[in-house]
């Protein structure tokens, strides 16, 4: 691509794949073995109804807590990505503020049951109806659709790891101070992702499908921000006093 920097060697790509995959597995919140043991148990009807009967603000707070838990694992993932901690602190913050929730949505496909259209949440597998009390059915449907479509690609753990790093290291985020540094890191990550896909004999279209997912992720995250501001307009005190501080810092 006419890039002046020296080409990345195969060995360097293998090394990058190894580091990012290891970082992913060390910080993935739910190991595959744990997921298998859970035997995909879903909520019983009365449990579903108890979520549906929760006051809107209580369900919002519960979801904010769960999102924040997942985001903390993503922060740990970022810290272990080769080169991320070499970026200036401003850019580390910019990338995580913009990309942590996107990586949470990517990781969601690891805990998603496509047959039953259900995601692991609060101890069991929950369908979209569990989230009715939030008052965001359109966004919830889109999030479930995204998880289902990402699941259909059947990405391996190292492919997921590389795609997560690729999403996080987006050089087009606003407020970046050292854009070129991030661009170099993202290009290397993309080469590593291509390398893994080739090594795993994936058909050609997968990389393009993954690129299209990036735009969907952006839309999901901006819709989340819109829903939050609409919610906060009605319940400002709840957000201020009951929402996790990190969540307010990132999305407030």
């Amino acid at each position: 691509n006419g890039d002046a920097s020296p080409p990345v060697s195969m060995a360097e790509l293998d090394h990058l794949v190894q580091i990012i995959s290891k970082s992913h597995l060390e910080t993935c919140q739910y190991l595959r073995e744990e997921l298998q043991q859970m035997s995909w148990q879903s909520f019983l009807q009365d449990e579903v109804e108890s979520y549906q009967n929760k006051p809107r603000e209580a369900m919002w707070q519960l979801c904010a807590v769960k999102i924040t838990e997942a985001i903390q694992y993503v922060v740990e993932f970022a810290k272990r990505i080769d080169g991320f901690m070499d970026l200036c602190q401003n850019d580390q913050i910019v990338l995580l503020k913009a990309g942590s929730l996107e990586v949470v949505f990517v990781r969601m496909c690891r805990v998603f049951d496509s047959q039953n259209n259900a995601v692991y949440f609060d101890g069991k597998f929950a369908g979209p109806d569990v989230f009715r009390a939030l008052g965001c059915d359109d966004l919830i449907t889109s999030v479930f659709d995204f998880a289902k479509s990402l699941c259909s690609l059947h990405l391996t753990e190292d492919e997921l790891a590389l795609f997560s790093a690729f999403v996080l290291l987006s050089a087009d985020r606003s407020w970046l101070q050292e854009k070129l540094q991030v661009e170099k890191l993202q290009q290397k990550t993309q080469l590593a992702l291509q390398h893994v896909l080739q090594k795993n004999h994936r058909e050609d279209g997968v990389l393009n499908k993954l690129r299209c997912k990036v735009a969907v992720l952006r839309s999901l995250c901006s819709r989340h921000t819109e829903k939050l501001s609409a919610f906060r307009a009605v319940y400002p005190d709840i957000v201020r006093t009951h929402f996790p501080p990190l969540y307010k810092e990132l999305f407030g």
């Binding site: 922060v75 810290k79 602190q89 580390q92 913050i93 503020k97 990190l246 810092e249």
Partner: peptide
């Protein structure tokens, strides 16, 4: 930006457990 993101900044400072 660091001022407005003290928690995130602190998480980044913590050693990778």
């Amino acid at each position: 930006l660091k001022e407005k993101h003290k928690i995130l900044h602190q998480l980044l400072q913590n050693s990778t457990s």
